[in-house]
Simulated assay, not measured.
Amino acid sequence: MTTVTGHLRTALWLAEFGLPVLPLREGKLPFGNCTACTSSKTAGPCRCGDRPNMKFAGPCRCPAPCHGWAAATTDPAVLTSRAWARSWQRAGAVAYHPGGGGFTVVDLDNTDAVTWARQTLPATRTVPTARGEHWIYQGAMQSANGARPGVDIKSLMVYARWYGPGTGDMTTLPDAVRALIVKEETTPAPREEVDSSPPTRATWDRSVATGCRHNDTFVRTGLTRGLARIAACPEQGAGSTAYGVARFLAKQHTACPGPCGLEAIERQIIDAAVAVGVPEAYATRAVARGFNAVAVRAS
């Protein structure tokens, strides 16, 4: 059993709230992979089975904190294990996987970025950092570096350094943040009309799910985990995974009197598949088949 002090104590406290955590070495970087895991970057799946951020996805049986964000865990037995002890002894900070906890961090890297956020984004929980602020929203999305000058989006498949609990009430992830990672076409095809902004993204709440027997946390947690599974398939299998996620989520609502408003989360599942290379038409068909495979009063 590892002695519980310093950064490990903070990590265990965060894990109690369902936030997956891992140690960082000096310089805010994860600890390097163990010998068994280094081959995953060059020679194929590593001997431990790999974790789902590598080129070759799969369940990782490695006991050490390898593979960066994907090693993050809420399991106190893992966090206090011998395999993690040396890393905690040398740790310079604690990190967490925002998407794994159902959150998105808008990382504002300088004063100009902070000023922009205050003028543009809805207020939420705010955490001071070494050079700027972290604005934390409830809800997960794809991550992106350089979403705009001085602004990174940290959610799925990345880690964020823990700077403290911050202040303010956390609000739901707004469309204004999601829109930051919408890529503009550099050579758009000719069109009769030009959209001035991306379409409004539907969100799931009681206004669209008046007959659903589940609460918001249940639905959003299931969606977040499903999006993470799709994001873990950058090479292959994302389309079939999107189908499976849609089918699984629909299955949870078979006993609801309806409507459950599942069409409000359909677009997010499609977008997650498109983000890892699935053609949009294919992703749309796969998700529709997943929902239609289960008899549910979605609307």
Rank of each mutant, 00 (worst) to 15 (best):
F218C: 11
T42M: 10
V245W: 02
G68I: 08
T111M: 07
V245E: 01
L8G: 00
F218H: 15
P165S: 13
G244R: 04
N215W: 10
Q119D: 13
G168N: 01
P188L: 08
L22G: 05
C34K: 02
I153Y: 01
T210P: 12
A83V: 09
T241S: 11
C37N: 04
A85E: 06
P122G: 03
C66T: 06
R82V: 14
T200I: 15
R201K: 14
S143P: 02
G32A: 10
I230C: 03
P45E: 08
D75I: 07
S39N: 14
L121I: 09
C37W: 05
R9L: 07
L121E: 01
Q236I: 13
A189D: 14
P257E: 07
V219L: 13
S40Y: 02
C233M: 09
A160T: 09
G150N: 04
H7P: 03
T171W: 11
F218K: 15
T126N: 12
T104N: 15
C233E: 00
R125L: 11
G27S: 06
T5I: 08
A160H: 08
R267I: 11
Q119W: 13
N53G: 15
R82D: 10
T111A: 11
G226L: 03
L227A: 01
P76A: 04
P257C: 04
S81L: 00
L14P: 00
A295P: 08
M157T: 09
T104E: 03
R297M: 08
F218L: 14
T73W: 13
A202E: 06
T10N: 08
V4H: 07
L12D: 01
G101S: 14
I265E: 02
T171V: 10
R47H: 04
T221C: 10
T129S: 05
E26G: 08
G239D: 00
A64H: 15
G100D: 01
R25N: 06
V114Y: 00
P199K: 06
T5E: 10
A11Q: 02
V114H: 04
A70P: 07
V182T: 14
T221D: 08
V182M: 08
H214V: 13
T120C: 11
P52Y: 08
H67P: 06
R213H: 05
G168D: 04
A272M: 01
G226K: 06
T42V: 13
P76W: 03
E184N: 12
F248T: 14
G244N: 03
